[in-house]
Amino acid sequence: MSYTTPIRLLNRLAGDIDPTAWAEFHRRYLDLIRGFAHRHGLQPADCDDVAQDVFVALSQSLSGFQYDPKKGKFRSYLKTLAIRAINRKLRQKYERRVQCDIEDEQNEVSCTFDGEAWEDEWRQYHIRLAMGRLTGEFNERDRMAFTQYAVLGQSAAETAEALGMSLDQVYQAKSRILKRLAERISQQVEEEG
C-alpha cells in the first residue's frame, strides 16, 4: 500500500467524504492518542473514548479546511485536541465518582499534562508508521533478526542460530534497517510540516 503524507491525508479528509482516508487516518493515529491517554491514567475503554472524541472534533473542524503550516503544526493541534478530550474524560469520571462516593472528593480532577509523554508517543507513532512502510522492503528473516537482536536484546549468536543466518547477516540486518528507519522518519517528519 502506498503512503499518503499527513498533509494530503488532511486535505482529503477536508474534501468529500472519503472513507478510505478516514480509515487510514484512524489506523495511523489511534495508537498515538490511546497511548497518550493511557499515560494519563485512563483505562483502555476510556482511552478509546478519548480517541473517538478527538476524531469527531477533528472531523468537525476539518470541513472546508485547508492546511496551512504557518498557522501551526498539525501535531500541536492534535495534541491540543487530545488534551481537551482527556480532561473531559477525567472530569466525567470524577463527576461520576463524586456522585457515588462523596469521600473521594479531594481527588485531583485535572492532571498536569506531560509534554515529554506526548513527544514520546509521537516518536513511537513515527516508528510504527515507518516500520509499517518498511515491512515490504526487508524479508521476514531480516525483520525477525532485527526484532530479536536489536529490540529484544538476544545475543547476535543466538539470533543467527535461531534464524539460520550468519553473524554478519544479523549485524547487517540491524544496521540496514536502522538506517532505513532513520531515512523514512526523517522524510515523515519533514512532510509533517
Binding site: R123, Q148, V151, S186
Partner: peptide, 19 residues
C-alpha cells in the same frame, strides 16, 4: 532519529514490532 542509539532506544519503547 538521526542518532542510531537514540533511535534504537525509541524503537525498543514502541509497542508494535515485527515478528
Amino acid at each position: 532519529f538521526t542518532d542510531a542509539g537514540l533511535l534504537l532506544e525509541a524503537v525498543c519503547k514502541t509497542s508494535t514490532h515485527w515478528g
